[in-house]
Design a binder for these strands. Structure first.
Length: 421
RNA sequence: GGAGAGAUGACCGAGCGGCUGAAGGUGCACGCCUGGAAAGCGUGUGUACGGGCAACUGUACCGAGGGUUCAAAUCCCUCUCUCUCCGCCA
Protein backbone atom coordinates (compact mmCIF):
# COMPACT_ATOMS: atom_id res chain seq x y z
CA UNK A 1 0.00 0.00 0.00
CA UNK A 2 0.95 3.61 -0.36
CA UNK A 3 2.05 5.81 2.51
CA UNK A 4 -1.03 7.65 3.75
CA UNK A 5 1.05 10.72 4.57
CA UNK A 6 2.38 10.71 1.03
CA UNK A 7 -1.12 10.41 -0.42
CA UNK A 8 -2.31 13.21 1.85
CA UNK A 9 0.42 15.64 0.84
CA UNK A 10 0.79 14.64 -2.83
CA UNK A 11 -2.69 13.79 -4.07
CA UNK A 12 -1.87 15.12 -7.53
CA UNK A 13 1.10 12.78 -8.00
CA UNK A 14 -1.01 9.83 -6.93
CA UNK A 15 -3.85 10.77 -9.25
CA UNK A 16 -1.49 11.07 -12.21
CA UNK A 17 0.12 7.74 -11.38
CA UNK A 18 -3.23 6.01 -11.22
CA UNK A 19 -4.19 7.54 -14.53
CA UNK A 20 -1.02 6.23 -16.21
CA UNK A 21 -1.94 2.77 -14.99
CA UNK A 22 -5.49 3.10 -16.15
CA UNK A 23 -6.75 2.53 -12.60
CA UNK A 24 -9.75 4.35 -11.26
CA UNK A 25 -9.82 5.10 -7.56
CA UNK A 26 -11.90 7.62 -5.68
CA UNK A 27 -9.04 9.50 -4.08
CA UNK A 28 -11.10 12.51 -3.07
CA UNK A 29 -13.33 10.35 -0.92
CA UNK A 30 -10.24 8.95 0.71
CA UNK A 31 -8.82 12.39 1.47
CA UNK A 32 -12.12 13.51 2.91
CA UNK A 33 -12.30 10.47 5.18
CA UNK A 34 -8.74 11.15 6.26
CA UNK A 35 -9.70 14.62 7.38
CA UNK A 36 -12.77 13.40 9.21
CA UNK A 37 -10.69 10.78 10.92
CA UNK A 38 -8.20 13.26 12.28
CA UNK A 39 -10.98 15.47 13.64
CA UNK A 40 -12.66 12.60 15.43
CA UNK A 41 -9.33 11.36 16.67
CA UNK A 42 -8.46 14.69 18.27
CA UNK A 43 -11.86 14.74 19.94
CA UNK A 44 -11.68 11.25 21.37
CA UNK A 45 -8.07 11.65 22.46
CA UNK A 46 -9.01 14.71 24.49
CA UNK A 47 -11.69 12.71 26.25
CA UNK A 48 -9.27 9.89 26.91
CA UNK A 49 -6.81 12.33 28.36
CA UNK A 50 -9.51 13.62 30.69
CA UNK A 51 -10.35 10.07 31.71
CA UNK A 52 -6.73 9.22 32.42
CA UNK A 53 -6.19 12.31 34.54
CA UNK A 54 -9.40 11.98 36.53
CA UNK A 55 -8.97 8.26 37.06
CA UNK A 56 -5.68 8.96 38.77
CA UNK A 57 -7.40 11.55 40.96
CA UNK A 58 -10.05 9.06 41.90
CA UNK A 59 -7.36 6.61 42.84
CA UNK A 60 -5.62 9.00 45.19
CA UNK A 61 -8.87 10.25 46.70
CA UNK A 62 -9.92 6.69 47.46
CA UNK A 63 -6.58 5.91 48.99
CA UNK A 64 -7.05 8.88 51.30
CA UNK A 65 -10.51 7.60 52.15
CA UNK A 66 -12.28 10.58 50.57
CA UNK A 67 -15.45 10.58 48.50
CA UNK A 68 -15.07 10.51 44.72
CA UNK A 69 -18.56 9.66 43.59
CA UNK A 70 -19.01 12.90 41.60
CA UNK A 71 -15.94 12.16 39.53
CA UNK A 72 -16.89 8.52 39.10
CA UNK A 73 -20.25 9.57 37.76
CA UNK A 74 -18.73 12.07 35.37
CA UNK A 75 -16.31 9.47 34.04
CA UNK A 76 -19.18 7.09 33.42
CA UNK A 77 -20.56 9.60 30.92
CA UNK A 78 -17.13 10.31 29.41
CA UNK A 79 -16.65 6.59 28.96
CA UNK A 80 -19.89 6.37 26.96
CA UNK A 81 -18.82 9.20 24.67
CA UNK A 82 -15.42 7.61 24.13
CA UNK A 83 -17.10 4.37 23.09
CA UNK A 84 -19.25 6.18 20.53
CA UNK A 85 -16.37 8.15 19.05
CA UNK A 86 -14.09 5.11 18.99
CA UNK A 87 -16.69 3.30 16.93
CA UNK A 88 -16.95 6.19 14.50
CA UNK A 89 -13.17 6.28 14.08
CA UNK A 90 -13.11 2.55 13.49
CA UNK A 91 -15.76 2.83 10.80
CA UNK A 92 -13.77 5.52 9.03
CA UNK A 93 -10.62 3.44 9.36
CA UNK A 94 -12.30 0.49 7.71
CA UNK A 95 -13.49 2.58 4.80
CA UNK A 96 -10.05 4.11 4.32
CA UNK A 97 -8.42 0.71 4.55
CA UNK A 98 -10.61 -0.76 1.86
CA UNK A 99 -9.76 2.13 -0.45
CA UNK A 100 -6.02 2.26 0.10
CA UNK A 101 -5.59 -1.52 -0.13
CA UNK A 102 -7.06 -1.34 -3.62
CA UNK A 103 -4.70 1.41 -4.81
CA UNK A 104 -1.85 0.01 -6.91
CA UNK A 105 1.77 1.05 -6.59
CA UNK A 106 3.08 4.21 -8.22
CA UNK A 107 5.02 3.34 -11.39
CA UNK A 108 8.71 4.25 -11.47
CA UNK A 109 9.55 7.21 -13.67
CA UNK A 110 11.64 5.08 -16.03
CA UNK A 111 8.64 3.12 -17.32
CA UNK A 112 7.30 3.67 -20.80
CA UNK A 113 3.87 5.25 -20.50
CA UNK A 114 0.98 3.53 -22.24
CA UNK A 115 -2.20 1.59 -21.60
CA UNK A 116 -1.12 -1.92 -22.62
CA UNK A 117 1.71 -4.30 -23.50
CA UNK A 118 2.22 -2.83 -26.94
CA UNK A 119 3.96 0.05 -25.16
CA UNK A 120 6.49 -2.22 -23.45
CA UNK A 121 10.08 -1.32 -24.26
CA UNK A 122 12.61 -3.93 -25.44
CA UNK A 123 15.85 -3.29 -23.53
CA UNK A 124 18.11 -5.91 -25.04
CA UNK A 125 18.11 -9.17 -26.94
CA UNK A 126 20.40 -12.13 -26.25
CA UNK A 127 21.10 -14.71 -28.94
CA UNK A 128 19.28 -15.14 -32.21
CA UNK A 129 15.92 -16.81 -32.69
CA UNK A 130 16.73 -20.46 -33.33
CA UNK A 131 16.80 -21.31 -37.06
CA UNK A 132 15.61 -24.63 -38.44
CA UNK A 133 15.75 -26.03 -41.94
CA UNK A 134 12.58 -27.94 -41.17
CA UNK A 135 9.25 -27.03 -39.66
CA UNK A 136 9.79 -26.94 -35.84
CA UNK A 137 7.25 -28.87 -33.84
CA UNK A 138 5.33 -27.61 -30.84
CA UNK A 139 6.61 -28.78 -27.47
CA UNK A 140 3.31 -30.56 -26.74
CA UNK A 141 3.73 -32.65 -29.88
CA UNK A 142 7.35 -33.40 -29.03
CA UNK A 143 6.33 -34.28 -25.49
CA UNK A 144 3.70 -36.74 -26.62
CA UNK A 145 5.97 -38.16 -29.32
CA UNK A 146 8.58 -39.11 -26.72
CA UNK A 147 5.96 -40.07 -24.13
CA UNK A 148 7.43 -37.60 -21.65
CA UNK A 149 4.40 -35.30 -21.35
CA UNK A 150 0.86 -36.62 -20.95
CA UNK A 151 -1.87 -34.00 -21.12
CA UNK A 152 -4.76 -36.35 -21.80
CA UNK A 153 -4.28 -38.56 -18.80
CA UNK A 154 -3.69 -35.52 -16.59
CA UNK A 155 -7.09 -34.26 -17.71
CA UNK A 156 -8.52 -37.60 -16.64
CA UNK A 157 -6.80 -37.50 -13.26
CA UNK A 158 -7.55 -33.88 -12.53
CA UNK A 159 -8.80 -31.70 -15.37
CA UNK A 160 -7.75 -29.24 -18.03
CA UNK A 161 -4.49 -27.33 -17.62
CA UNK A 162 -2.65 -30.05 -15.74
CA UNK A 163 0.23 -32.18 -16.97
CA UNK A 164 1.80 -35.50 -16.11
CA UNK A 165 5.55 -35.55 -16.69
CA UNK A 166 6.95 -38.98 -17.34
CA UNK A 167 10.38 -40.59 -17.67
CA UNK A 168 12.94 -38.14 -19.00
CA UNK A 169 10.27 -35.45 -18.99
CA UNK A 170 9.93 -35.72 -15.23
CA UNK A 171 13.65 -35.91 -14.99
CA UNK A 172 14.10 -32.80 -17.12
CA UNK A 173 11.76 -30.85 -14.90
CA UNK A 174 13.59 -32.03 -11.78
CA UNK A 175 16.97 -31.34 -13.37
CA UNK A 176 15.98 -27.78 -14.14
CA UNK A 177 14.87 -27.19 -10.56
CA UNK A 178 18.17 -28.48 -9.18
CA UNK A 179 20.24 -26.70 -11.78
CA UNK A 180 18.64 -23.33 -11.14
CA UNK A 181 18.81 -23.62 -7.36
CA UNK A 182 22.45 -24.69 -7.62
CA UNK A 183 23.40 -21.69 -9.75
CA UNK A 184 21.60 -19.17 -7.59
CA UNK A 185 22.90 -20.54 -4.29
CA UNK A 186 26.51 -21.16 -5.31
CA UNK A 187 27.12 -18.38 -7.82
CA UNK A 188 24.65 -15.62 -6.98
CA UNK A 189 24.62 -15.72 -3.18
CA UNK A 190 20.99 -16.64 -2.53
CA UNK A 191 20.01 -18.75 0.48
CA UNK A 192 17.65 -21.55 -0.44
CA UNK A 193 14.26 -21.77 1.22
CA UNK A 194 11.60 -24.45 0.91
CA UNK A 195 8.44 -22.69 2.07
CA UNK A 196 4.88 -23.81 2.78
CA UNK A 197 2.82 -24.15 -0.39
CA UNK A 198 -0.29 -22.85 1.35
CA UNK A 199 -0.51 -19.51 3.11
CA UNK A 200 -3.05 -17.61 5.15
CA UNK A 201 -5.04 -14.56 4.13
CA UNK A 202 -2.65 -12.15 5.80
CA UNK A 203 0.28 -13.33 3.72
CA UNK A 204 -1.72 -12.98 0.52
CA UNK A 205 -2.63 -9.45 1.58
CA UNK A 206 0.97 -8.65 2.45
CA UNK A 207 2.24 -9.25 -1.06
CA UNK A 208 -0.82 -7.76 -2.75
CA UNK A 209 -2.75 -10.75 -4.15
CA UNK A 210 -5.57 -9.91 -1.74
CA UNK A 211 -8.00 -8.27 -1.35
CA UNK A 212 -8.33 -7.51 -5.06
CA UNK A 213 -7.45 -10.74 -6.84
CA UNK A 214 -9.08 -13.53 -4.88
CA UNK A 215 -10.63 -15.02 -8.03
CA UNK A 216 -7.14 -15.81 -9.34
CA UNK A 217 -6.36 -18.01 -6.35
CA UNK A 218 -7.24 -21.52 -5.26
CA UNK A 219 -8.67 -21.55 -1.76
CA UNK A 220 -8.47 -24.64 0.39
CA UNK A 221 -11.91 -25.68 1.52
CA UNK A 222 -12.82 -25.52 5.24
CA UNK A 223 -9.74 -23.43 6.02
CA UNK A 224 -8.63 -19.88 5.49
CA UNK A 225 -5.62 -21.07 3.51
CA UNK A 226 -4.78 -20.48 -0.14
CA UNK A 227 -2.52 -22.41 -2.50
CA UNK A 228 0.37 -20.13 -3.40
CA UNK A 229 0.40 -18.66 -6.92
CA UNK A 230 4.15 -18.08 -6.55
CA UNK A 231 6.81 -18.63 -3.87
CA UNK A 232 7.02 -14.85 -3.68
CA UNK A 233 4.12 -14.97 -1.23
CA UNK A 234 5.48 -17.27 1.49
CA UNK A 235 9.09 -16.12 1.06
CA UNK A 236 8.36 -12.39 1.21
CA UNK A 237 6.18 -12.93 4.25
CA UNK A 238 8.96 -14.75 6.11
CA UNK A 239 9.93 -11.44 7.69
CA UNK A 240 6.41 -10.10 8.19
CA UNK A 241 6.18 -7.85 11.27
CA UNK A 242 9.94 -7.96 11.80
CA UNK A 243 12.60 -5.30 12.12
CA UNK A 244 15.68 -6.46 10.23
CA UNK A 245 19.20 -5.35 10.96
CA UNK A 246 20.41 -2.86 8.37
CA UNK A 247 23.76 -4.68 8.24
CA UNK A 248 22.04 -7.84 7.03
CA UNK A 249 20.64 -6.16 3.91
CA UNK A 250 20.25 -7.16 1.22
CA UNK A 251 18.78 -10.54 2.21
CA UNK A 252 18.64 -12.92 -0.75
CA UNK A 253 16.45 -16.00 -0.90
CA UNK A 254 15.68 -18.44 -3.66
CA UNK A 255 12.94 -21.00 -3.44
CA UNK A 256 11.49 -23.80 -5.48
CA UNK A 257 7.75 -24.25 -5.27
CA UNK A 258 4.84 -25.42 -7.33
CA UNK A 259 2.53 -22.54 -8.21
CA UNK A 260 -1.24 -22.72 -8.39
CA UNK A 261 -3.26 -20.28 -10.43
CA UNK A 262 -6.96 -20.32 -11.16
CA UNK A 263 -6.38 -18.55 -14.48
CA UNK A 264 -9.81 -17.01 -14.29
CA UNK A 265 -10.48 -15.06 -17.45
CA UNK A 266 -7.97 -17.02 -19.51
CA UNK A 267 -10.49 -19.38 -21.09
CA UNK A 268 -9.38 -20.29 -24.55
CA UNK A 269 -5.92 -18.78 -24.21
CA UNK A 270 -2.86 -21.03 -24.46
CA UNK A 271 -5.01 -24.10 -24.11
CA UNK A 272 -2.33 -26.46 -25.40
CA UNK A 273 0.98 -27.34 -23.84
CA UNK A 274 2.83 -26.19 -20.77
CA UNK A 275 2.47 -22.44 -21.17
CA UNK A 276 -0.61 -21.81 -19.04
CA UNK A 277 -1.29 -24.41 -16.38
CA UNK A 278 -3.20 -24.43 -13.12
CA UNK A 279 -0.12 -25.94 -11.51
CA UNK A 280 3.45 -25.31 -12.56
CA UNK A 281 6.90 -25.36 -11.01
CA UNK A 282 9.03 -22.31 -10.47
CA UNK A 283 12.28 -21.25 -8.86
CA UNK A 284 11.79 -17.80 -7.40
CA UNK A 285 14.30 -15.15 -6.36
CA UNK A 286 13.37 -12.78 -3.53
CA UNK A 287 15.33 -9.84 -2.15
CA UNK A 288 14.93 -7.56 0.84
CA UNK A 289 16.95 -4.49 -0.04
CA UNK A 290 17.91 -1.10 1.30
CA UNK A 291 15.82 1.66 -0.33
CA UNK A 292 18.99 3.43 -1.41
CA UNK A 293 20.09 0.70 -3.77
CA UNK A 294 17.00 -1.33 -4.56
CA UNK A 295 17.15 -0.41 -8.25
CA UNK A 296 20.72 -1.67 -8.51
CA UNK A 297 19.47 -4.82 -6.84
CA UNK A 298 16.74 -5.10 -9.44
CA UNK A 299 19.34 -5.00 -12.22
CA UNK A 300 21.36 -7.70 -10.47
CA UNK A 301 18.33 -9.87 -9.86
CA UNK A 302 17.34 -9.59 -13.51
CA UNK A 303 20.87 -10.51 -14.52
CA UNK A 304 20.76 -13.51 -12.20
CA UNK A 305 17.64 -14.77 -13.96
CA UNK A 306 19.13 -14.03 -17.39
CA UNK A 307 22.20 -16.06 -16.45
CA UNK A 308 20.07 -19.20 -16.36
CA UNK A 309 18.85 -18.61 -19.90
CA UNK A 310 22.39 -17.91 -21.05
CA UNK A 311 23.72 -21.09 -19.47
CA UNK A 312 20.91 -23.03 -21.11
CA UNK A 313 21.72 -21.20 -24.37
CA UNK A 314 18.14 -20.16 -24.95
CA UNK A 315 17.57 -16.96 -26.94
CA UNK A 316 15.64 -14.31 -25.08
CA UNK A 317 14.99 -10.62 -24.76
CA UNK A 318 14.42 -8.25 -21.84
CA UNK A 319 11.40 -5.99 -21.82
CA UNK A 320 10.43 -3.14 -19.50
CA UNK A 321 6.72 -3.23 -18.80
CA UNK A 322 4.72 -0.11 -19.57
CA UNK A 323 2.63 1.67 -16.96
CA UNK A 324 -0.57 0.00 -18.17
CA UNK A 325 0.88 -3.54 -18.21
CA UNK A 326 2.71 -3.64 -14.89
CA UNK A 327 1.38 -5.65 -11.95
CA UNK A 328 -0.62 -4.20 -9.08
CA UNK A 329 2.15 -4.16 -6.47
CA UNK A 330 5.16 -3.43 -8.68
CA UNK A 331 6.85 -0.09 -9.30
CA UNK A 332 9.02 -1.47 -12.10
CA UNK A 333 9.13 -4.82 -13.88
CA UNK A 334 11.45 -6.41 -16.40
CA UNK A 335 10.02 -9.40 -18.21
CA UNK A 336 12.40 -11.96 -19.65
CA UNK A 337 10.92 -13.47 -22.78
CA UNK A 338 12.28 -16.70 -24.21
CA UNK A 339 12.12 -17.61 -27.88
CA UNK A 340 9.53 -20.27 -28.73
CA UNK A 341 10.14 -21.47 -32.29
CA UNK A 342 6.81 -23.13 -32.89
CA UNK A 343 4.82 -20.05 -32.00
CA UNK A 344 7.49 -17.94 -33.65
CA UNK A 345 7.49 -15.48 -30.78
CA UNK A 346 9.04 -14.50 -27.47
CA UNK A 347 7.07 -15.63 -24.40
CA UNK A 348 7.40 -14.46 -20.82
CA UNK A 349 9.51 -16.84 -18.76
CA UNK A 350 10.43 -14.54 -15.89
CA UNK A 351 9.14 -11.36 -14.38
CA UNK A 352 11.54 -9.34 -12.23
CA UNK A 353 10.11 -6.54 -10.14
CA UNK A 354 10.94 -3.92 -7.59
CA UNK A 355 8.00 -3.31 -5.29
CA UNK A 356 9.81 -0.58 -3.36
CA UNK A 357 8.09 -0.29 0.03
CA UNK A 358 4.62 -1.23 -1.25
CA UNK A 359 4.66 -4.81 0.01
CA UNK A 360 6.86 -3.99 2.99
CA UNK A 361 4.28 -1.53 4.24
CA UNK A 362 1.48 -4.07 3.87
CA UNK A 363 3.47 -6.85 5.48
CA UNK A 364 5.18 -4.49 7.95
CA UNK A 365 8.76 -5.47 7.13
CA UNK A 366 11.26 -2.89 8.34
CA UNK A 367 14.96 -2.47 9.00
CA UNK A 368 16.91 -0.34 11.39
CA UNK A 369 20.48 0.84 11.57
CA UNK A 370 22.49 1.97 14.59
CA UNK A 371 20.91 5.34 14.44
CA UNK A 372 17.59 6.52 13.16
CA UNK A 373 14.12 5.08 13.02
CA UNK A 374 12.97 1.83 11.51
CA UNK A 375 12.23 2.18 7.81
CA UNK A 376 10.41 -0.08 5.42
CA UNK A 377 12.65 -2.30 3.31
CA UNK A 378 12.27 -2.57 -0.43
CA UNK A 379 11.15 -5.99 -1.63
CA UNK A 380 12.03 -7.44 -5.03
CA UNK A 381 11.43 -10.71 -6.71
CA UNK A 382 11.71 -12.48 -10.00
CA UNK A 383 11.32 -15.91 -11.48
CA UNK A 384 14.59 -17.61 -11.89
CA UNK A 385 12.91 -19.22 -13.87
CA UNK A 386 9.46 -20.65 -14.54
CA UNK A 387 10.31 -24.34 -14.94
CA UNK A 388 7.45 -25.51 -17.16
CA UNK A 389 8.03 -22.80 -19.71
CA UNK A 390 11.76 -23.54 -19.60
CA UNK A 391 11.01 -27.18 -20.37
CA UNK A 392 8.83 -26.04 -23.27
CA UNK A 393 11.60 -23.76 -24.54
CA UNK A 394 14.20 -26.50 -24.36
CA UNK A 395 12.02 -28.99 -26.21
CA UNK A 396 11.28 -26.54 -28.99
CA UNK A 397 14.70 -24.88 -29.33
CA UNK A 398 16.74 -28.09 -28.99
CA UNK A 399 14.65 -30.28 -31.30
CA UNK A 400 16.33 -31.99 -34.25
CA UNK A 401 14.87 -32.85 -37.63
CA UNK A 402 14.25 -36.46 -36.56
CA UNK A 403 12.32 -35.23 -33.53
CA UNK A 404 15.04 -36.04 -31.02
CA UNK A 405 15.92 -33.40 -28.44
CA UNK A 406 19.44 -32.49 -27.45
CA UNK A 407 20.03 -31.74 -23.80
CA UNK A 408 21.76 -28.40 -23.03
CA UNK A 409 25.36 -28.99 -21.90
CA UNK A 410 24.81 -27.66 -18.38
CA UNK A 411 21.93 -30.09 -17.81
CA UNK A 412 23.62 -33.23 -19.06
CA UNK A 413 25.12 -34.17 -15.72
CA UNK A 414 21.69 -33.78 -14.11
CA UNK A 415 19.92 -35.69 -16.87
CA UNK A 416 22.39 -38.50 -17.29
CA UNK A 417 21.77 -38.44 -21.06
CA UNK A 418 22.77 -36.09 -23.88
CA UNK A 419 19.69 -36.51 -25.99
CA UNK A 420 16.06 -37.53 -25.72
CA UNK A 421 15.20 -39.77 -28.64
C1' G B 1 -8.37 -36.16 18.73
C1' G B 2 -7.74 -35.83 24.66
C1' A B 3 -5.12 -33.31 29.09
C1' G B 4 -2.14 -29.38 30.81
C1' A B 5 1.34 -24.88 30.46
C1' G B 6 2.39 -20.47 28.14
C1' A B 7 2.48 -15.78 24.66
C1' U B 8 5.51 -8.88 27.83
C1' G B 9 10.39 -4.28 24.25
C1' A B 10 15.99 -6.02 19.16
C1' C B 11 16.55 -10.54 22.69
C1' C B 12 15.97 -12.88 27.72
C1' G B 13 12.87 -11.98 31.77
C1' A B 14 9.93 -9.55 36.19
C1' G B 15 5.22 -7.58 37.15
C1' C B 16 -0.73 -10.18 38.16
C1' G B 17 -6.32 -3.75 39.24
C1' G B 18 -4.31 2.74 40.10
C1' C B 19 2.24 5.74 41.47
C1' U B 20 4.18 0.56 34.94
C1' G B 21 5.76 2.45 28.62
C1' A B 22 6.61 -1.27 31.69
C1' A B 23 12.05 -3.54 37.06
C1' G B 24 16.55 -6.41 36.05
C1' G B 25 19.74 -8.44 32.43
C1' U B 26 21.69 -9.08 27.34
C1' G B 27 22.53 -6.57 22.96
C1' C B 28 23.38 -1.88 20.64
C1' A B 29 25.18 3.46 20.55
C1' C B 30 28.10 7.36 22.74
C1' G B 31 31.79 8.80 26.44
C1' C B 32 35.77 7.57 30.08
C1' C B 33 39.80 4.24 30.68
C1' U B 34 43.93 1.74 27.07
C1' G B 35 49.71 2.09 22.90
C1' G B 36 45.45 -0.80 20.82
C1' A B 37 41.78 -4.25 22.28
C1' A B 38 39.13 -7.03 26.12
C1' A B 39 37.33 -6.19 30.88
C1' G B 40 35.51 -2.21 33.88
C1' C B 41 32.86 2.45 34.71
C1' G B 42 29.22 6.26 33.14
C1' U B 43 25.24 7.89 29.90
C1' G B 44 21.65 6.73 26.45
C1' U B 45 18.52 3.23 23.84
C1' G B 46 10.33 1.15 21.91
C1' U B 47 6.66 1.59 17.98
C1' A B 48 2.45 3.86 15.59
C1' C B 49 -0.79 7.89 15.00
C1' G B 50 -2.21 13.16 16.05
C1' G B 51 -0.60 18.45 17.36
C1' G B 52 3.79 21.91 17.20
C1' C B 53 9.05 25.48 13.23
C1' A B 54 11.24 23.23 17.36
C1' A B 55 12.25 21.84 22.39
C1' C B 56 8.17 19.14 23.29
C1' U B 57 3.31 17.17 23.87
C1' G B 58 -1.42 14.00 23.56
C1' U B 59 -3.37 9.09 22.50
C1' A B 60 -2.76 3.94 21.69
C1' C B 61 0.10 -0.53 22.10
C1' C B 62 2.46 -6.18 27.15
C1' G B 63 -0.35 -12.64 21.03
C1' A B 64 -5.54 -10.91 18.48
C1' G B 65 -10.62 -9.46 19.36
C1' G B 66 -14.54 -8.50 22.83
C1' G B 67 -16.21 -7.61 28.09
C1' U B 68 -16.10 -5.93 33.50
C1' U B 69 -14.32 -1.21 35.96
C1' C B 70 -13.96 5.70 37.33
C1' A B 71 -9.18 2.96 36.05
C1' A B 72 -6.71 -3.42 32.91
C1' A B 73 -0.15 -5.99 30.98
C1' U B 74 -2.81 -7.41 35.57
C1' C B 75 -9.91 -9.85 36.23
C1' C B 76 -13.63 -12.48 32.63
C1' C B 77 -14.95 -14.54 27.57
C1' U B 78 -13.65 -15.98 22.46
C1' C B 79 -9.90 -16.90 18.93
C1' U B 80 -4.81 -17.71 17.11
C1' C B 81 -0.08 -19.56 17.91
C1' U B 82 3.85 -22.15 20.85
C1' C B 83 5.41 -25.97 24.33
C1' U B 84 4.70 -30.74 27.34
C1' C B 85 2.15 -35.50 28.01
C1' C B 86 -1.34 -39.31 25.83
C1' G B 87 -3.59 -41.28 21.29
C1' C B 88 -3.15 -41.64 15.92
C1' C B 89 0.11 -41.23 11.83
C1' A B 90 3.81 -40.26 6.57
Amino acid sequence: MLDIKFVRSNPQIVKEALEKRGASINLDEFLELDEQRREKLAEVENLKNRRNVVSKEIGSLKREGKDASDLVEEMGQVGENIKILDNQVREIDEKMESIIMAIPNIPHESLPIGPDESFNRVERTWGEPTKFDFEPKAHWDLGEMHDILDFERAAKVTGARFTIYKGLGARLERSLISFMLDVHTTEHGYTEVLPPFMVNRQSMTGTGQLPKFEEDLFKVNNTDYFLIPTAEVPVTNIYKDEILNEKDLPILHCAYSPCFRAEAGAYGRDTRGLIRQHQFNKVELVKFAHPENSYEELEKLTNNAEKILQLLELPYRVVTLATGDIGFSAAKTYDLEVWLPNSNTYREISSCSNFEDFQARRANIRFKGDKGKPQFVHTLNGSGLAIGRTTAAILENYQQEDGSIKIPKVLQKYMGVEVIK
